[in-house]
Design a protein around this nucleic acid. Structure first.
Length: 279
DNA sequence: AACAATGTTCAGTC
DNA sequence: GGACTGAACATTGT
């Protein structure tokens, strides 16, 4: 589910429904999701504190914590809670009575409201409300003090210079580079297909063979795709995503959609508009 | 029933 | 070091 737009939705859920209350209980018992922390480590660090801010870079979320009594507002050595939604994670806030207060507007998908069977991590606040990571596949990750510096610039705000620098090194396939979170942060498998389709560039093209004008198209397509997904409710609302299926035809020119594997992920592209260049 | 799935990391190879 | 592959994680939907 989550790529940059969905993670931004999760960030906003935390911001509007979980800041400013005291943490009275922490369930960090899932040793896989909370790795490499030992059970109780995250609980010890967070119990008694407040979430004071929710941030995002790429697909990584983190919350600053503070303490009303000491006036510590998340500066200095205050513990920072890192959250990653993995492939199937979702941030959900439940009220004191267990009813779902906020699960975000994006990717409601198949999940039924109030279904917390797959809660893998939870904070309980002093008013009885809870913040949960609901994650059936358990590929999400929770930890203290995440290393956000290792991520590339956020795809929603990357500058043209930084984008060109990130794309134009090495020889990897352009889609693999778009998916590289250390190069540019936030683009996932679906967003990458949409961006390359909009830019009319074959996903397998080596980055060192892209012309300056192609890199410009790629940048414009990235900005527009990310902005559209943020504005319209997630990556599923993008144009070419519904046509990533057998037998589909390109919504622009009706040529057959092709399928392959690039960067280790299933990749769809327009057979006519995104040709593999003849060598 | 087999297969793929919006992600990341690690081990192994060339 | 860079690029590539496969495995691992656990469950669901087609």
């Amino acid at each position: 589910m989550p790529e940059l737009p969905e993670v931004e939705s999760a960030r906003s859920v935390i911001e509007r429904a979980a800041l400013g209350r005291r943490i009275v209980e922490v369930d960090d018992s899932d040793t896989y999701v909370c790795r490499p922390h030992r059970p109780g480590e995250i609980r010890s660090a967070l119990t008694g504190r407040l979430l004071v801010a929710a941030h995002r870079r790429g697909k990584t979320l983190w919350c600053d914590t503070g303490d009303n009594d000491t006036g510590d507002n998340g500066a200095g050595d205050a513990p920072v809670l890192g959250l990653h939604l993995g492939m199937s994670g979702k941030i959900v806030i439940a009220g004191a009575d267990g009813s779902e207060v906020d699960g975000g507007d994006y990717w409601e998908g198949r999940r039924v409201k109030g279904d917390y069977r797959w809660s893998r991590f939870a904070l309980t606040f002093d008013d009885g409300s809870r913040l949960m990571l609901v994650d059936p596949r358990r590929l999400g990750r929770i930890g203290l003090d995440p290393e956000i510096d290792r991520l590339g610039p956020d795809a929603a705000t990357v500058t043209p210079a930084a984008f060109r620098a990130a794309v134009a090194t090495g020889t990897v396939a352009v889609k693999a580079r778009l998916l590289d979170q250390h190069a540019i942060a936030g683009i996932g498998n679906l967003l990458a297909d949409e961006i390359l389709w909009r830019a009319r560039i074959n996903p397998a093209r080596p980055v060192d063979e892209l012309t300056p004008s192609e890199i410009d198209r790629l940048l414009r397509a990235t900005r527009r795709s990310v902005a559209a997904a943020l504005a319209h409710g997630g990556v599923h609302t993008l144009t070419v995503i519904p046509f990533r299926r057998p037998g589909a035809r390109c919504p622009r020119d009706h040529a057959p959609m092709s399928r392959g594997k690039v960067g280790g992920r299933t990749t769809w592209w327009c057979s006519a508009e995104q040709p593999v260049p003849a060598k």
